[in-house]
């Protein structure tokens, strides 16, 4: 165990302060190291190679560069993001409305909660192949896939957010003769905003999963097509590059939304990280 000995260099007690390495915080340093380590392992595994279908990191990055230069990557993302934006917007408008309604009204909750809980818990992705029969393989089908995956999360988060609004704040507002309308707009909605926004963030991530899945399963367009096309012609480095951008894109998107969430809705969380 710990030695209880007089020594001056032990001043930094149990409160672990971050140290600086190469002018950055040590956690950032180790994160960057871990990224490079992963790429190095990827490169080595590709050079062995562990499988004919496993290109090296460098050739994957080369393929990525090719696709960025000839505009294929840009076009693919434009194609993929359209249904995502439309689907998430629709889910956000209706999802937040239904969720908030459920939080405020017992009948709404009675009617909507079970169906959304079932949708949230069940593998609705199984239904994606069916969408083709109803909506063809165009933008609509992809948008429906996005809504199917994004809406339940947004609804349930909005509902929980309103449900968990601090009761003593509500009573405070009531005791100062706030009307029901004032209670909702000045207390319940503002205090629910952070969780509602967190739900939107999760909805965007889920919607992205939905659109990629739709592109892989039913409509060979966008980024999903980059993946399946290059797989079918065995240009694996291009396929891996496309998968790589999908993961990277989702990480950046979710990261930015998290930053926005902390900045605008949870300033108290800033220091905790």
């Amino acid at each position: 165990m710990s030695a209880v000995a007089p020594s001056v260099d032990k001043i930094s007690g149990p409160t672990k302060k971050s140290e600086k390495i190469l002018g950055m915080t040590d956690t950032l340093f180790y994160r960057i190291v871990s990224v490079f380590a992963l790429f190095a392992i990827w490169e080595i595994a590709g050079r062995i190679p562990i499988s004919v279908a496993f290109p090296t990191f460098s050739s994957t990055m080369g393929a990525l560069w090719d696709m960025i230069l000839d505009g294929r990557m840009f076009n693919a993302y434009a194609e993929t993001l359209k249904p995502l934006a439309v689907g998430v917007s629709i889910s956000a408008v209706f999802g937040v409305a239904i969720g908030v309604g459920m939080g405020l009204n017992r009948l709404m909750q009675w009617f909507w909660e079970p169906i959304f809980v079932v949708l949230q818990a069940s593998p609705v992705a199984a239904l994606i192949p069916l969408i083709t029969y109803a909506y063809g393989i165009g933008l609509t089908a992809k948008t429906v896939a996005v809504i199917m995956l994004a809406a339940p999360i947004i609804v349930l988060n909005s509902y929980k957010a309103v449900r968990n609004a601090n009761p003593s704040l509500i009573q405070m507002c009531q005791s100062f003769q706030g009307t029901r309308f004032q209670v909702i707009w000045q207390v319940i909605i503002p205090s629910a905003a952070p969780v509602i926004f967190a739900g939107l963030r999760l909805g965007v991530a889920a919607g992205f999963i939905g659109v990629i899945l739709a592109e892989l399963l039913i409509t060979p367009t966008g980024v999903g097509d980059l993946i399946s096309y290059h797989r079918s012609v065995a240009e694996y480095q291009y396929m891996y590059a496309a998968v790589f951008t999908v993961i990277l894109f989702s990480a950046i998107m979710v990261g930015l939304l998290e930053v926005a969430e902390v900045k605008y809705f949870r300033p108290e969380k800033k220091k905790g990280h």
């Binding site: 999963i209 990629i212 899945l213 980024v223 993946i227 496309a242 998968v243 999908v246 989702s250 990480a251």
Partner: peptide, 9 residues
């Protein structure tokens, strides 16, 4: 939070 379905292929 990544769309892991893209990794399935």
């Amino acid at each position: 939070s990544a769309p892991l379905s893209s990794l399935v292929p």
